[in-house]
């Protein structure tokens, strides 16, 4: 019986540990995505404007495309003024996004960024983005939101196009908590 108690408690500990492991996968996933650029989530490397001291590379042009989406059922308009621009690595660029809350209620939106190819993820720095924080919009409010970014000249040579995608999600209830 003593022998059983020992084996059972070892297996019981294993069970509890694996339950915990399931939850530990959440932060592990975050870390892994940020390190590797998996899932394109590490696109938002945040940098203050005065920290950037890249050498301008005037000979190289990289195409940056912007995709804008609103999650299903959310009554917002959201678009980029330019869907595609060509930029020199090392230069600070500004793109303006327009968003409108077409509903009759105050809402809070959260834009979630994603990028392709993921190997470019570590080479794009943003100094300003509406995606950094939740965006409260009053009923019917219309707003222009600039996004400023710079591409690291170290970006691998085979990357000539970067696609940045932003999807607005309704975060009203999350913001209320």
């Amino acid at each position: 019986m003593k022998k059983h108690a020992k084996t059972v408690s070892l297996l019981g500990v294993a069970t509890v540990a694996m339950f915990g492991f399931g939850f530990a996968l959440v932060p592990l996933y975050e870390v892994l995505c940020n390190i590797t650029g998996l899932n394109g989530r590490s696109d938002s490397i945040v940098t203050a404007a005065d920290e950037i001291d890249y050498q301008l590379d005037p000979d190289r042009l990289v195409t940056v495309q912007f995709l804008t989406d609103v999650n299903s059922g959310m009554p917002w308009d959201f678009s980029a003024r330019q869907t595609s621009i060509q930029v020199n690595p090392g230069k600070l660029n500004t793109v303006v996004f327009d968003a409108t809350n077409r509903s009759g209620q105050d809402m809070v939106g959260q834009a979630v960024p994603s990028m392709r190819p993921s190997e470019a993820a570590g080479y794009l720095r943003k100094t300003e983005c509406f995606c950094f924080t939740q965006q409260p919009f009053e009923a019917g409010e219309q707003r222009q939101m600039p996004m400023r970014f710079v591409i690291d000249p170290e970006l691998p040579a085979r990357v000539d196009t970067i696609s940045l995608s932003y999807t607005f999600f309704d975060a009203t209830s999350i913001a209320a908590n």
Binding site: L11, A14, T15, V16, M18, F19, G20, F21, G22, F23, L25, V26
Partner: peptide
Amino acid sequence: LIAVMPVLAGAVTM
């Protein structure tokens, strides 16, 4: 079973 059923339990709890 001991290794993965608890992970499923965690996922559905989330």
